[in-house]
Amino acid sequence: MIEWRKQLGFDDGDIARIRSPIGLVPGAKSRPTLAIGILAEFASEAKQAGLID
């Protein structure tokens, strides 16, 4: 996967910022549960970046 991303033009810095799996909640079996996990990740990142209180 890393080589594929490099072929697409991503550099090592870009690749280092990739975090996965986003939104995966252990035991989640429904789309709403996965969506909440993704939104929680966004909120966490926004808070760390100082975009929200």
Rank of each mutant, 00 (worst) to 15 (best):
G9C: 05
D11M: 09
I15H: 01
E41I: 04
I15R: 02
F10A: 01
I52Q: 00
R17L: 10
Q48K: 13
Q48A: 14
E3D: 14
P26R: 11
Q7D: 14
A35F: 10
D12A: 11
I52Y: 03
K29Y: 10
E41K: 10
S44W: 07
F42W: 04
E45M: 14
W4M: 14
L39R: 09
K6S: 07
R19Q: 11
R17P: 00
I52G: 00
K6E: 10
A40E: 06
E41Y: 06
S20I: 09
A46M: 14
G23V: 12
A49T: 04
A46W: 13
I2Y: 09
S20V: 10
G50I: 06
L34H: 08
F10R: 00
D53F: 06
R31P: 12
D53N: 08
I15D: 02
M1H: 13
A28D: 00
A40S: 13
R19Y: 11
G27T: 12
A49Y: 04
L24G: 07
S20D: 11
S30P: 03
A46H: 01
I36W: 02
I38N: 02
I15N: 00
D12K: 04
R31A: 15
K47I: 06
A46D: 08
I2C: 07
R19M: 11
I18H: 07
S44I: 06
S44N: 08
G27M: 05
E3A: 12
I18Y: 08
I38R: 03
L39W: 01
I15F: 01
